[in-house]
Design a protein around this nucleic acid. Structure first.
Length: 270
DNA sequence: GACAACCTGACC
DNA sequence: GGTCAGGTTGTC
């Protein structure tokens, strides 16, 4: 479900509500969602204070006092909600944390999401975090081009690969390629450096606008307070199969790349 | 690369 | 009954 803009929105929401609060009790209601790389127990969080909440790629990271951290990945249908009404849905509630003044619930219909409790000082060894590529905002267009040019697979699959670039998922990969006028199937050796630098700018712009609109609620996504985002109203090609391209009216084409639906305009994207 | 697996629910 | 889903991982 959530990609970089959605996770960023949730991180900011949770930070605004929960920073400075102390954990009274943290518990897994379903240990299947506990990541097997954990090095600390949920009970270790009791009495600790949330100092900071950050994002890395699509991961949310809670930083507690006394060298404790918690890494959350929402995968497709995970939700982290402040003060949710648990009586409405406790079937899909898998983790719960009571704090001084609020509580935090982790829901996930499909149970793909994961939570890992570890030491702050061990975050750099976390199996997923340690392999992530750079954040799109942290590199220059030239650096982005260098990274992409080293790879041989199609540009869409490169954008989706979290070890190459962190944070893009299916919606924002399709939207960025549309904005840059690049066909998703192209391999980097067929794309000029100038066009790849434009693509980097498109990625930054699409992500910035999506963050400004609090993410895309295409299906399940809700922010930290249970509210939908707005970017789904600004999507140009993702999920728009057979609908008119906003630029030229040509019907949007859908193909499968790497097992994922891929949407593009065959006239605007060369 | 393609494909199945992990799960559940929505929709045709 | 079949298809599809904002993700990731592991296996031919």
């Amino acid at each position: 479900m959530p990609e970089l803009p959605e996770v960023e929105t949730i991180a900011r929401d949770l930070a605004s509500a929960l920073i400075g609060q102390k954990v009274l009790k943290a518990e897994f209601l379903n240990t299947a969602i506990r990541e097997n790389c954990y090095t600390r127990e949920e009970t270790d969080l009791n009495g600790k204070t949330i100092n900071r909440i950050s994002r890395r790629g699509k991961n949310l990271i809670f930083h507690f006092s006394e060298n404790l951290a918690m890494v959350c990945h929402l995968k497709m249908t995970g939700r982290l909600l402040v003060d949710s009404d648990r009586s409405r849905d406790n079937k899909h509630l898998h983790f719960f944390m009571r704090l001084d003044k609020s509580d935090l619930s982790f829901y996930d219909v499909r149970k793909f999401g994961r939570i890992c409790i570890t030491a702050e000082s061990e975050l750099n060894q976390h199996p997923r975090l340690s392999k992530l590529g750079p954040e799109p905002f942290d590199i220059t267009p030239a650096e982005f081009t260098d990274i992409v040019k080293r790879r041989s697979k199609s540009i869409k699959l490169i954008l989706l690969d979290q070890e190459i670039l962190a944070g893009l998922g299916n919606i924002y990969a399709d939207e960025s390629l549309y904005s840059a006028g690049i066909r998703p199937t192209l391999k980097p050796y067929r794309i000029s450096r100038a066009r790849l630098e434009i693509l980097h700018g498109s990625i930054i712009e699409v992500l910035d606008v999506a963050i400004g609109n609090r993410g895309s609620s295409v299906d399940d996504y809700l922010d930290g307070f249970g509210q939908a985002g707005n970017f789904q109203n600004l999507i140009k090609v993702y999920g728009k199969t057979d609908q008119a391209c906003p630029g030229c009216e040509t019907p949007i084409k859908r193909i499968i790349l790497g097992g994922r639906s891929t949407h593009y305009c065959m006239k605007c994207q060369k």
